[in-house]
């Protein structure tokens, strides 16, 4: 009489099934509620984030943007060997200066020994890693001694910072001298 051992009551099974169904429905509803709408639009990420990423502000512009207003410096800067140097490297980002086509604030202009620091950031011979074809490097007190000027001279006393050889070329022309580099070429 084995059959009699089997329970005739199924309420516990019904309870468990009901709990599973309720949990499942809650999970689906909750997931839909919690997940962003565009999740999974293109892949396992929020599709609308692409739009957010595109709307990041462009803060740095190109030199051309600066030259639109700063015309005189444009002629000097673009003619010299420093034409590849970014305006914003020394003066700060465009967005801090102009916003929505309107002037907001003045950008810093380096003065005094700040200029020397800035020059030596690239032109310091003591950092030996600089390829000669890319940049001309100088050893600092020695360069001043070689050029027979006082050792406390600042770089911009001989070199126009936007076109470093501008004044030197002009002076040499006046004196009828040739540039050191010209002889090699």
């Amino acid at each position: 009489m084995e059959k009699e051992y089997k329970s005739k009551y199924y309420s516990h099974v019904v309870k468990i099934v009901l709990i599973f169904i309720v949990v499942g429905v809650l999970a689906v509803v909750g997931r839909n509620y919690l997940l962003p709408d565009t999740m999974g639009q293109y892949g396992h990420y929020r599709g609308s984030d692409l739009e957010d990423q595109r709307n990041v502000e462009v803060r740095s512009h190109t030199n051309e943007s600066c030259f639109e207003c700063h015309r005189p410096i444009r002629l000097i800067h673009k003619a010299g060997v420093h034409k590849t140097v970014s305006c914003e490297f020394c003066h700060g980002p465009y967005a801090d200066h102009v916003k929505d086509g309107k002037y907001v604030a003045k950008l810093p202009v380096k003065k005094g020994m700040e200029i020397k620091e800035l020059c030596l950031r690239c032109h310091n011979k003591i950092i030996r890693a600089r390829p000669e074809e890319s940049i001309k490097v100088v050893a600092m007190p020695q360069h001043l001694e070689e050029m027979k000027v006082q050792v406390d001279h600042n770089c911009n006393q001989c070199h126009m910072v936007h076109d470093p050889l501008l004044w030197i070329k002009a002076a040499n022309e006046m004196m009828g001298m040739e540039m050191k580099g010209d002889k090699k070429n």
Binding site: S60, S86, E88, F89, P93, C122, I127, P131, S134
Partner: peptide, 18 residues
């Protein structure tokens, strides 16, 4: 790598931009 002069323009620009 053979051209880089280690001036850090890129790092400055990056900090400015973001």
């Amino acid at each position: 790598v053979t051209a880089c002069i280690g001036c850090g323009s890129c790092c400055v620009a990056d900090k400015n931009e973001y």
